[in-house]
């Protein structure tokens, strides 16, 4: 079992900078209570990696890896029924901690846009995991990836942003980077798959704002 390597991209407090024009009381108070926005990169998180062959075809153990965006750590599988985790990965499927998947307030939706330009989580459109499937849709093209049947390669769709409500009700946005171990730039079908890497930004204060 390999533990994900965590790289702290922006270990910074993105302080609420008061602009010249907006220097009123409310913004000052917001600054006083500022909670740092978290920007992290998670690499090579096991997403049910291949453990063997059944009838000649590769299979994983069928288990999810649970992850806390709020604490930027893997959550033990025993705690899968808790609100400790926010997202869970198995193959290309991503669950949120809500609805049929967990007891939290988790919800999610997919947006098309540039990660840095999405400054606010949408006010509506969130779904929770249900009998109809995960809130973060599955399937090539519908989800965060495209699968190329000719090369057997899973590639993240550029410009597809996952917006997630965590188990605790705060908002985060994710950009999937890779499905292969070591984040190869040009993956091929024979590389070690089912290790996800992603960037995320979490607004811990409960607001939908991802920028100052």
């Amino acid at each position: 079992m390999t533990f994900p390597q965590r790289i702290r991209l922006l270990p910074v407090l993105l302080l609420f900078v008061t602009t010249l024009s907006a220097c009123d009381d409310s913004s000052t108070s917001a600054m006083d209570n500022a909670v740092p926005i978290v920007a992290e990169r998670v690499t090579d998180l096991p997403s049910d990696p291949i453990i063997g062959l059944v009838d000649g075809r590769p299979v994983g153990a069928g288990l999810y890896t649970f992850y806390s965006l709020r604490e930027n750590r893997v959550v033990a599988r025993e705690d899968s029924a808790s609100t400790q985790w926010d997202v869970a990965f198995r193959g290309t499927t991503i669950l949120v901690n809500g609805g049929t998947s967990g007891p939290g307030q988790g919800a999610g939706l997919l947006l098309d846009g540039i990660f840095s330009e999405i400054t606010e989580a949408p006010a509506s459109g969130f779904e929770t995991d249900s009998e109809n499937g995960p809130a973060l849709k599955t399937g090539s093209g519908n989800s965060w990836y495209n699968y190329n049947p000719a090369t057997n390669v899973v590639s993240p769709i550029p410009g597809r942003v996952l917006v997630v409500r965590t188990a605790g009700g705060t908002y985060a946005k994710l950009s999937m980077l890779s499905y292969y171990r070591g984040m190869p730039e040009n993956p091929t079908g024979d590389m070690e798959a089912r290790y996800v890497s992603f960037d995320y930004i979490l607004q811990p204060d409960g607001s939908r704002q991802f920028a100052r």
């Binding site: 093209g141 990836y145 495209n146 190329n148 090369t151 590639s155 769709i157 550029p158 410009g159």
Partner: peptide, 14 residues
Amino acid sequence: FADANGNLILDADQ
């Protein structure tokens, strides 16, 4: 030849 960067269209040199 084939899409390599996930957007399914032909745009990147590789």
